[in-house]
Design a protein around this nucleic acid. Sequence first.
DNA 1: CCACTTTTTGAAATAAATTGCAGAAAGTTC
DNA 2: GAACTTTCTGCAATTTATTTCAAAAAGTGG
Lengths: 153, 153
Amino acid sequence: MEYIINIRPALYNKGYRITGQRQQIIRILDKATDHQSAYKIYEELRKMNHRVSIATIYRTLDLLVELNFVRRIDRHKQPSVYELADPGKGPTVKVHLICRKCNQVQDISSSLSVMFNDLVGKAQLYHEFSIEPQAISLRGLCAKCRVESARGN
Amino acid sequence: MEYIINIRPALYNKGYRITGQRQQIIRILDKATDHQSAYKIYEELRKMNHRVSIATIYRTLDLLVELNFVRRIDRHKQPSVYELADPGKGPTVKVHLICRKCNQVQDISSSLSVMFNDLVGKAQLYHEFSIEPQAISLRGLCAKCRVESARGN
DNA sequence: CCACTTTTTGAAATAAATTGCAGAAAGTTC
DNA sequence: GAACTTTCTGCAATTTATTTCAAAAAGTGG
Ligand SMILES: [Mn+2]
Ligand SMILES: [Mn+2]
Ligand SMILES: [Zn+2]
Ligand SMILES: [Zn+2]
């Protein structure tokens, strides 16, 4: 909620401009309860009669990901989806389970999430590679789809 | 080495056909010491006067990934690269460090790799989600690029 | 508010990845 | 190996994502 309040000065301090488009895009992500694709954000804004191009959505999401305000969740052969990263609050790496059949995106439990973070921290130290807050996508089959594909189909 | 020997019967048993294109693509992956992109494989085969289309390369890689013979390493804004998965040999999930500046792909140490695998196993049990052997991409800055971006530029 | 510099934007072009479809090749049965 | 069935391939079309570039907007300092 009111995430825009935190991002605005952060953008400003780095010399990025506070444009209407950027604010609207952040607002959409902030209000959303589920993960959003670039195109979904685009449609949403057009519905509200805001003037944006899809290119701006992609560029803004790229920027927010680079600044670690947003995580990109990569689904193969499906458009990526995005979520706010809430820096400061807990683990920075979030793990998602992506079903390769129904494309559903599921968050991993928070305790496992903490363990993943610890491990990523170790990898960072060992390899002297600064890993950035982000989404890890684990692909596979969800319980429902596994049952379905087990019995034929 | 001679990886094709293992894949051939596996394909056959699942009703997939052993085509010249598939065998050549597997051979390229097998001989390669580094990670290969679809286009690189395409060029390689054309150089050797093999008749293939880029669409077939993509389709074959998709198939091999689905059958867990190959891992897809996703790099954002750069074509994905691929490596043989060597099922049977050790951990099934491999973690890669991808530098967002120079796009270099680095393998994680094998001991950390084992730890990641254990954790992925736990996630699989807890969420009743069958996670498939694959590549996890961790994005960030490699040591070299971090130094460079630290001093201006 | 005006003049000025720098960043950002939309629209269109381009690039990368995917898909539809008709012909070709693989596998099967005699 | 001919006839037959099924899968696969190449090509072209399409979709999705990215980039280019001139015009617009944001920020700065009168
Ligand atoms: Mn999530
Ligand atoms: Mn590797
Ligand atoms: Zn599913
Ligand atoms: Zn680098």
